[in-house]
């Protein structure tokens, strides 16, 4: 796949730090993920009350996408033609375990609907799509490790076949205390070439 496209921006959330295009926008060390992500939400004026109802994976993906898309000055009143291609390793396992725990004991069998709705990883795509009115293609892939080549090929294909104008893609992994989010926006114009080398370089930033 050739590199006719560009990476216009990227965002990462790892080690209790949120960065946009390599610059730190929020950091709060020595607190657990649940407290960190809530504090970041408040600090970054995210203004989406449903955030608090999301599971941990959706909070991670939603906030990373929000930090990135807010910087794109999108019109929130109109549909935005941006596809979403996400990936991770643990799927929704973190929430699956919570649901499993609630149905383990027949004598205390009270599964939570609010937990159950997050027992699929691609639910986080829905949360982002609702806020930013994204009605384009979306996919969520499960890989053993971050797979830059697949993301490159898939997003380039979506753009080359006219399925979308831009692609928000990357890796949103969360399992217990371990988490790692890296999202980037692929566009048809720009200066940083959309290729495997740059995708990996920004992932490791």
């Amino acid at each position: 796949m050739n590199s006719d496209y560009y990476i216009s921006s990227f965002c990462s959330i790892k080690n209790n730090t949120i960065s946009l295009n390599g610059s730190k926008v929020y950091s709060d060390e020595n607190i657990e993920f649940s407290e960190f992500i809530k504090a970041a939400y408040k600090s970054l004026n995210t203004n989406y009350p449903k955030f608090f109802k999301m599971d941990a994976l959706s909070k991670l993906a939603f906030l990373a996408a929000d930090v990135l898309l807010k910087n794109e000055n999108l019109n929130s009143e109109e549909e935005n033609d941006i596809a979403i291609v996400f990936s991770n390793k643990a799927s929704s396992l973190d929430t699956d375990r919570k649901h499993q725990k609630s149905i383990d004991n027949e004598e205390d069998y009270f599964p939570s609907p609010a937990v159950f709705v997050y027992t699929l990883p691609n639910i986080c795509i829905g949360e982002i799509s609702i806020k930013y009115k994204l009605f384009s293609e979306n996919s969520f892939f499960i890989f053993e490790n971050f797979n830059a080549q697949h993301l490159l090929d898939y997003s380039s294909s979506l753009l080359a076949t006219g399925k979308t104008d831009k692609v928000l893609c990357g890796w949103v992994e969360l399992d217990g205390d371990q988490y790692d989010a890296y999202l980037y926006l692929v566009t048809k114009t720009g200066t940083t070439t959309h290729n495997k080398k740059n995708i990996i370089k920004f992932y490791n930033t």
């Binding site: 009350p49 109802k53 009270f110 599964p111 939570s112 609907p113 609010a114 709705v117």
Partner: peptide, 16 residues
């Protein structure tokens, strides 16, 4: 501003 999932949660709460 509760939603449909909240309604299901309340139904579970009544039972539990």
């Amino acid at each position: 501003g509760l939603d449909s999932i909240d309604a299901l949660e309340l139904i579970v709460m009544l039972d539990k």
